[in-house]
Design a protein around this nucleic acid. Structure first.
Length: 477
RNA sequence: GUCCCGUUCGUCUAGUGGUUUAGGACUCAGGAUUUUCAUUCCUGCAACAGGGGUUCGACUCCCCUACGGGAUACCA
């Protein structure tokens, strides 16, 4: 075995990639890159009842869309496959037998009804709710008899009932748990599939995972896992439990209170760069004050030791700001490609690429997500309808004088340059006595449908002479 | 209920016993730039959960309480 660091992202395919999972994947990815190690994708699909059609494909696509590339995985192969747990059942059976032989696990024939009753009694008697171990000491003969009767069974771990486990977690540091509080966990379900706990331990060992980086919800399961490692005579990997992502009300981040699916964020026009940057900062912070990170920089500066302990509220406001930042600062051509589908969906003509780029460039300054771009850009494609208030401005004497003046002069021009516009602006003031808001508002209203908006020369440039004249003409009474 | 984990501005966080009038970012407010809006820049508001210790000195170490979260499944 080499010293190579190997980490893994092990989602269960439940339909979509959760942003919390994305962060887990990101931290794993970053740690692998930082240490020149390997990043493995493993699909934890041992719960047949929760099988969702297409979920794995969706997961892989989303990971790809966001640029988190793994070194080994279901569609990539690798020396440690298969990377679907559902395809590894024979492997688990082998180690399960070993656990049975070593008396670290036992058959349990309790039915769901039995267990339900047991729990009710425990609650009624204010006892701890835990499997009471009634099948723990079944004799070989008893077991064989039930097996012969084809009674359904599960196999449970024979967790010690006294003493305590102490382990070290990279972010929690020393954690101390008494064995008596740990349940005799089911290892193999009655359908023959392993539970997370067994599959996880076996796979992490066989795949030579050196660091388990996952959500805090697993922290209390660590003793169960440690027990299995020990029983099998394996060296456990280093543990690293990430703080949870929270709703604004501090409960665990959930669908009820907004988007949690990564694909939804992408659809709404969040850039992978922004999403990743933002999410990296939820529970981790670099040494300095920097908060804007490219992937490269993240890979260089990331460190498990700087992960914080407390849960982090997912603050959409800051994501919006950050997305706006990336919209404005990433290469225009890249943003233009990303924005294309929005324009096409809105039915806007983007056949003139030069013009298209200009429009995107104007718009990117005024939006925080790509999905807002159509609205921001609409006046360039569609002549606006005016409110009563706007009509009053358009129809007043000065405005009309202005429009006529501009119309005449523009028509005389061969082509419109920024210079010629500035000159006309100047002349409007000198010859017509119109200045300030009385000058700019009507013009912008006529051409862009709003008193607020981009600079006049930009609007002229994008619209082109013909369209400018066209729009002006329509408003002259 | 029990076990485990956590608690610095509204939010994300820096901070590892004195360098701190607790720093940065988002939000918000004000200002500058701009014909306007947006962008950008500047300024400001705003926090160590509470109580005990330990110490010459605690945001930093220990204990208790409160609060929050997670786990208590033949789900992951």
């Amino acid at each position: 075995m080499s010293n190579e660091i190997r980490v893994r992202f092990a989602p269960s395919p439940t339909g979509y990639l959760h942003v919390g999972s994305l962060r887990t994947a990101l931290y794993n990815y970053l740690y692998a890159r930082k240490t020149c190690g390997k990043f493995v994708l493993r699909i934890e699909d041992t719960d047949r009842s929760r099988y969702v059609e297409g979920a794995v494909e969706n997961l892989i696509e989303t990971l790809q869309a966001v640029g988190l590339e793994y070194d080994e995985g279901p569609d990539k192969g690798g020396d440690f496959g298969p990377y679907f747990q559902s395809k590894r059942t024979d492997i688990y059976k082998k180690y399960l037998q070993e656990l049975l032989d070593k008396d670290a696990a036992y058959y349990c024939f309790c039915t769901e009804d039995d267990l339900k009753k047991m729990r009710e009694e425990q609650i009624a008697n204010k006892m701890d709710i835990r499997y009471d171990g009634r099948c723990r000491n079944l004799s070989k003969e008893q077991i064989q008899e039930k097996l012969d009767q084809a009674k359904p069974y599960v196999i449970r771990a024979k967790i010690p009932d006294e003493g305590e486990v102490v382990f070290f977690d990279i972010v929690r540091e020393r954690v101390n748990i008494k064995w008596e509080t740990v349940d005799d966990q089911v290892l193999i379900k009655s359908d023959g599939y392993p539970t997370y706990h067994l599959a996880n331990v076996v796979d992490d060992h066989l795949m030579e995972i050196t660091h388990v980086i996952r959500g805090e919800e697993w922290l209390s399961s660590v003793p169960k896992h440690l027990f299995l490692y020990q029983a099998l005579g394996w060296k456990p990997p280093k543990m690293c439990h990430l703080p949870l992502l929270l709703n604004p009300d501090k409960s665990k981040l959930s669908k009820r209170q907004g988007d949690v699916a990564v694909e939804d964020f992408l659809k709404k026009g969040y850039l992978p760069e922004a999403l990743l940057n933002f999410i990296a900062l939820l529970g981790w912070h670099a040494k300095g004050d920097d908060e804007l990170f490219t992937m490269d920089k993240l890979e260089k500066e990331f460190s498990l030791k700087r992960i914080s302990k407390a849960g982090a509220v997912f603050d959409i406001e800051k994501l919006n700001w950050m997305n706006g930042h990336y919209l404005r600062n990433l290469e225009l051509g890249y943003i233009a490609i990303k924005a294309k589908s929005c324009f096409i969906e809105a039915g806007f003509d983007i056949s003139d690429n030069e013009k298209y780029l200009k429009i995107v460039d104007v718009a990117r300054n005024r939006i925080s997500t790509l999905s807002e771009i159509t609205e921001a850009v609409k006046p360039f494609f569609i002549v606006s309808t005016y409110s009563e208030e706007d009509q009053q401005i358009i129809n007043n004497k000065n405005s009309q004088k202005l429009f006529t003046f501009w119309l005449e002069n523009l028509k005389a021009l061969d082509f419109i340059t920024e210079d010629s516009i500035n000159q006309l602006l100047k002349r409007s003031t000198e010859e017509l006595g119109i200045k300030g808001k009385d000058l700019y508002f009507p013009l912008r209203l006529a051409l862009f449908g709003s008193v607020h908006g981009p600079e006049l020369p930009v609007i002229f440039d994008i619209l082109g002479k013909n369209e400018v004249i066209n729009r002006l003409q329509k408003l002259v009474k």
